[in-house]
Design a protein around this nucleic acid. Structure first.
Lengths: 338, 338
DNA sequence: ATATGATCTGAAATCGTTTTCACAGTTTCG
DNA sequence: CGAAACTGTGAAAACGATTTCAGATCATAT
């Protein structure tokens, strides 16, 4: 492409570089007639200010980095869509850091932000990629960021979180209300805060109902469909089986239902299945999934807007925003069998 | 963050800026002892070269832009994942341009590339966002790009495409082989090249089998689950109903199966349903979806690798790469009912 | 001993903008 | 009427790196 730069415009419009820049950035500062001359030249030549020069001079890129474990997970995809929507409205573009949960990739993308390839980042992992000095103020040692989904173990940054303990309780309570007493859980990775919290809620609800905890009913999954499949197969081999399975996300619940049907179980008559996230497909699976909905659009929007507000000078103290979950009862849960 | 720049390193290591830069970029050019001194200073201070300065000087950003209609579509999400994987391996980061099929947003992201915010782009839409002079060589008028999914109506750029006509034929032929003669289609938007081509394949297969085309059996969808739902409802209201539905993507097929089950149709005994894409969920839907698989990983990888090769100086003539589709027969299709 | 070449390094130019500073001309106001 | 304030503009500095060019040093060949 034949590149036309600010110099060319200046020459054509017979003004200085400064005036061209001002016409584009702060039109008020330049006289009507001059401005028009510049604008004509810009229009005629199709000039677009070069972002690299602009970025360097202004010390901002207009990019935000979203660091996320796996974009093929529909929940994450929804998140990214909401983020990109909000960012786009505010004039920012989204750099995608899909890490496949690899700590190295997480670090690599954080490095990129620290090198100034993006102005700030949204961090959807619980692993701390920094080694900062806890004595000194954190804000001066790390890039501007918002943390969500998995909670980092330090304060001083904005966070957007779900009350996973309560969500876990609510899910299990729904099953208890239906008369279930042997309730299994297929969890997320237990080294994550979200899975731990949901687990905690699961245990609290059972204990409150006077039900003894049973290790065998808890199976660690990894949020992939396959681990829902394997977990359910293991549960079906137990001597005393559960009557309900609480899966820590919808994908695993879909895997669970699949196995159950293959083994001629009716859902929910013979076994109830409860999911988490409320992804689009949970409505279209048969039976439609009872699930704990996360407000994915809201989470994505708040994350992006909060980060960008910070980038634009918001200096209010970092805050932890809670978003509300909601139990959506559909067809995959029902009364406990006799 | 207390920023440490190349100047600081130079001062600490007692060398010039040039030597610091050389140590990092072309270590061979600097003497072992000096190099070590610089590296020590870098390690001690945690220096990361600033990308904005670097980008401006080298006239490259290390970003590629992926312009795609909707990241929440699982096929697109898979594509993006493959792209980001390949790009990351080659030292590039992915800027995500989710356009929600809006021409304005497409243009906006293309503008960003033209302004140098990314080095090149992957363009998964069929709408031409440029107005170039067809007389002059195209390569000089548009950014480096690879086009896929929907084909642009001009040559001179790399393309990665599926043979959608043949894929449509193969899908319909499978249904014909099962004895179906009244075969409906729920298409994608008919102003897209992919939907048109699949449609063409659909028609050819029917005509070759001596079956008359019936307008009422063709319903235009938009690749969303809901349009599969609505389309199927319309088909069920017909006086003479089809015995099979060819949906132009899996999401619509999932919607179709849903409606059919709600209306007490058995799939495939009463009605066969055929999808397109082979998304992850097509295995887990009941009945599991017969579908035309696109090699999504391969498409994403090829697109990214081709683009980056171009950016790194590959000057071979632009080429159109075809990738192979494959009919995957699962449970949602069966012999035509009597 | 001198020319030639190879190796290493630093000073300065450069990438394309934005922004500061200075200045000239004009208006406002006491 | 003169000082002060304001308006509009351009020259030059700045952002933070890479790279060109030239010079210094040292080894090698003649």
């Amino acid at each position: 492409m034949a590149k036309v730069g600010i110099k060319d415009i200046a020459r054509i419009a017979n003004v200085s570089l400064a005036t061209v820049s001002r016409t584009l950035r702060t039109p008020d500062l330049v006289q009507e007639t001059t401005r028009q001359r510049v604008l004509d030249a810009v229009a005629a030549s199709g000039y677009k200010p070069n972002r690299m020069g602009m970025n360097l001079r202004t010390q901002r890129t207009g990019n935000i980095m979203a660091i996320i474990p796996d974009i093929t997970n529909p929940f994450n995809a929804g998140l990214i869509r909401a983020i990109e929507e909000a960012a786009s409205n505010l004039g920012y573009a989204v750099l995608l850091g899909d890490t496949q949960s690899s700590p190295e990739r997480e670090k690599q993308y954080v490095d990129l932000v620290e090198a100034g390839q993006a102005d700030g980042m949204l961090y959807f992992s619980g692993r701390n990629p920094f080694d900062f000095d806890p004595e000194k103020p954190i804000a001066e040692q790390i890039p501007t960021m918002v943390n969500s989904n998995e909670e980092l173990d330090f304060d001083g940054i904005d966070k957007v979180m779900l009350d996973n303990v309560q969500a876990g309780r609510d899910a299990v309570q729904h099953l208890l209300d239906l008369g279930h007493t042997r309730i299994a859980a297929i969890t997320g990775p237990l080294n994550t805060q979200s899975a731990q919290s949901r687990m905690q809620g699961y245990q609290q609800a059972l204990l409150d109902a006077g039900i003894e905890l049973d290790d065998k009913l808890v199976i660690e999954g990894d949020y992939q469909i396959d681990s829902g499949v394997e977990g359910t197969e293991r549960l079906l081999r137990l001597k005393t089986r559960p009557t309900a399975i609480f899966c820590f996300n919808d994908d695993m619940a879909i895997g669970a239902i699949n196995v159950l049907k293959s083994n001629d179980y009716r859902v929910p008559e013979d076994m109830s299945v409860l999911g988490f996230d409320d992804i689009l497909y949970s409505t279209y699976v048969r039976p439609a999934l009872t699930t704990v909905a996360q407000p994915v659009e809201e989470i994505g929007r708040i994350c992006a807007e909060k980060l960008i507000a910070r980038l634009q000078g918001d200096e209010s103290p970092p805050e932890k925003t809670f978003v509300a979950h909601k139990l959506i009862v559909r067809e995959s849960t029902g009364p406990a069998p006799k």
